[in-house]
Structures are given as C-alpha cells and as structure tokens.
Amino acid sequence: MNIDKKIADDLVANDISFVTTVPCKQLAGVIEEIDQRDDIFHIPSNKEDEGMGLCAGAWMGGKRPAIIMQNTAIGVTLNTLATLIQYYRMPLPMLISYRGELREPVACQVEMAVHTKALLAQLNIPTYHFHWQKDVEELDNILKYTFMCNKPVAILTDANFWGGYGDQ
C-alpha cells in the first residue's frame, strides 16, 4: 500500500479540497502527493496558526479544509485552537507527524512528544494515533467524524507508521 496516495484519496473522497501544510520529513511524501492532486488546492503556510486561519476562512467560504503539520506545532497553535477553531465551532482535521516517538533519531523531538497527547487531552481534542500501516484504514471514518461534530481532530502518525525514520 502507498500510504501517501491512500491519505490523499481519503481526503478527496471526503470532499476536502483546501489543504495547508508546514513540512516535516515524515510528511514529505504526502505533501508531494497532495501538491500534485488537481482536486486539492494546496497552500503552504509559514506557521501553523496562520494555516489554521486559512482553514477557518476556507471553511466559512464553503470548502472543507485540512492541515498537515508536525506535533511540535501543537505548541504554536494552542491559542488558535481554543479561541478560533473551537470557540467558533469549526471542523479541522489535523494530520500530524508524531515526532519523538519510537524509532526517532533526534532527541530534541522527544521533548514535545511527551507533551503532545497531554496537551490535546487538555483541549478535549479527539485524538487518534496511527502506529501500524493498517491504522490508516480508520482515516476515512475519522474525517467523516470531524465534519459531523465540527471540531478539530488530531491524527498522530508516528515514525513506525511511516515505515521508520532514516531507514525508510
């Protein structure tokens, strides 16, 4: 299975046509895939809170958005999640590379990894963790759930899910 293609297919199948990204090495493949899709408008952002602003506007304009970012960006976006996405009750699927987990080679990444789930839980953000490739089968249901309840929803994808880091 090509996970990058599968993720892009699920986004398109759920009518998600506006995707903003800030890169992570683990996300390089899926970002490239999304960039090539005609049915997705890909707008790179410079910071993840900016990206969430773009997504909020696109959703109010009638397009279904998504953001693709690294878990370190949870630290950047707490205020935006609470005072924009949640306060105005907007849906936002967040495909997040979960750096600092098993098979991580960069020690600094662990420093935000240990806070990631706690922060998401503190914000009452529904959170899913993809560890095995087959976990991606849940993505379609998670996207439907997100636009059913109009909430930000986190999909954490760790190195094991992406097939390892450095040796992939």
Partner: peptide
Amino acid sequence: YMLGTMGLASSIGLGLALAQ
C-alpha cells in the same frame, strides 16, 4: 468579528477569498 486570536484576520480573509 474576531473575538480572539490576534494576528489571523488576514489569514482567515485569504482562506475565505480563495474558497469563494
């Protein structure tokens, strides 16, 4: 009206303009 989230008016507006 933005009630919080200082800084994002321009981004919200751009997303909106691009979407419709």
